[in-house]
Computed example of a mutant assay.
Amino acid sequence: MSLISPALSDALESWLAAQKALKDASQNTLDAYRRDVSRFLAFMADHSGGAHGTAPLARVETRDMRAWMAHERARGLSARSLARALSAVKGFTRWIARREGLEPTAILSTRAPRAKTRLPRPIAPEAARDVLTTVAETAREDWIAARDTAVVTLLYGCGLRISEALSLTGADAPLAETLRITGKGGKERIVPVLPAAREAVDRYTALVPYDIAPASPLFRGARGGKLNPKIIQNAMAQTRALLGLPATATPHALRHSFATHLLSAGGDLRAIQELLGHASLSTTQAYTAVDTARLMEVYEAAHPRANGSSG
């Protein structure tokens, strides 16, 4: 595959810098953008016989886009990953078109492939409770058992992502009645902390053999460093084996379960959206695996016309 021209390479780096400055994109996101757009530009350079500069983007045709997408699928890219790559390509192309007065119609009008929606699979409330009480049995030492219990309790009891739980520091302990969590995209949210979660963290901090300074990670690995999420994933794998739960019972499934169980108990969909830190209500709807009947109940309870109000 061809190397992209210096002009396009410089333009790509300028666009990435703009994404970081304007949208506060994470390094992982920027790396993915760079990889996806670079592959596209290199493919188009090959496809067009090695044309250089930015102008050839305006000459890309629909058949060229189809060829690129077919090439990406042939090398094993899923529909979801290809849609992500196309989004990055469109973002870069739109940016460079504004700067240079190009009209790359074929690129910007290309439709993303449809990806099958993979709804999360929450575990049953009783199974979630069993996880909280059983995960300690997979640990070799009491403090590690207390640590793993504290982490999974935060996932299920507060709806935290595993990265959010492991980003807590010594300054967060003992836990207050609420936690200020910084989630995806730097978005902050306030999460209520259940007494069970506070007690689990208190037990862990009483047993951990390492000094937990305010600026240091709250959850530690066996050698004292920051706890790796894979350790919790492994503990969860052992726990589901003990309990006979399916492979879908992962740490992230506990977050799904938190949301689903709250909604089933009568929780408000928008309030759960805030607790999870979702930008879109539709994301929360899918996330909680809400069935149509339950959605209609929420709708009828909340919608002015549904409950007879004219306001």
Rank of each mutant, 00 (worst) to 15 (best):
A7T: 12
A7R: 10
D10M: 05
W15H: 15
L16F: 06
L16H: 05
A18Q: 12
A21N: 06
K23C: 10
D24V: 10
Q27W: 09
T29P: 08
L30K: 03
L30Q: 12
D31R: 14
R34E: 13
R34I: 10
R39A: 15
L41N: 06
A42F: 02
F43K: 08
F43P: 05
M44E: 13
H47N: 08
S48M: 14
G50M: 06
P56L: 10
A58Y: 07
R63Q: 14
M65W: 03
A67M: 07
M69W: 00
A70G: 13
A74D: 14
R75A: 06
L77S: 14
R80T: 11
A85F: 00
K90D: 03
G91P: 01
W95E: 08
R99M: 12
G101T: 05
E103S: 15
T105A: 15
A106C: 09
R114H: 06
R114C: 00
A115M: 00
R118H: 13
R121Q: 15
P122H: 11
P125R: 11
E126A: 14
E126K: 13
E126P: 03
V131D: 08
T134F: 00
T138N: 09
T138I: 14
D142S: 14
W143G: 09
W143P: 07
A146E: 02
R147S: 10
D148G: 08
V152R: 05
L154D: 02
G157N: 05
R161Y: 07
E164F: 01
L166Q: 09
L168A: 08
T169W: 00
T169F: 04
G170I: 01
E177C: 04
E177W: 09
E177Y: 07
R180E: 12
G183F: 04
G183V: 03
G185P: 11
G186L: 11
K187C: 09
E188L: 14
I190L: 15
V191W: 06
A196Y: 03
R198H: 01
R203M: 04
T205D: 06
A206H: 07
A206F: 03
V208A: 12
V208R: 01
P209G: 03
I212S: 06
A213W: 05
A213S: 14
L218S: 05
G221Y: 02
G224N: 01
G225K: 11
N228C: 12
K230N: 12
I232K: 04
N234M: 10
R240T: 06
R240Y: 02
G244R: 10
G244M: 08
P246E: 08
P246T: 01
H252G: 03
H252T: 03
L254I: 09
L254Y: 08
S257L: 09
F258A: 07
H261K: 11
G266S: 09
L269V: 14
Q273M: 10
G277L: 08
H278Y: 06
L281Y: 01
S282Q: 14
T283M: 09
T288C: 15
A289E: 11
V290Y: 00
L295G: 13
M296C: 07
E300Y: 01
E300P: 00
A302C: 08
H303T: 06
P304K: 08
R305C: 04
R305K: 12
R305M: 09
G308E: 10
S309Q: 14
S310C: 07
G311R: 15
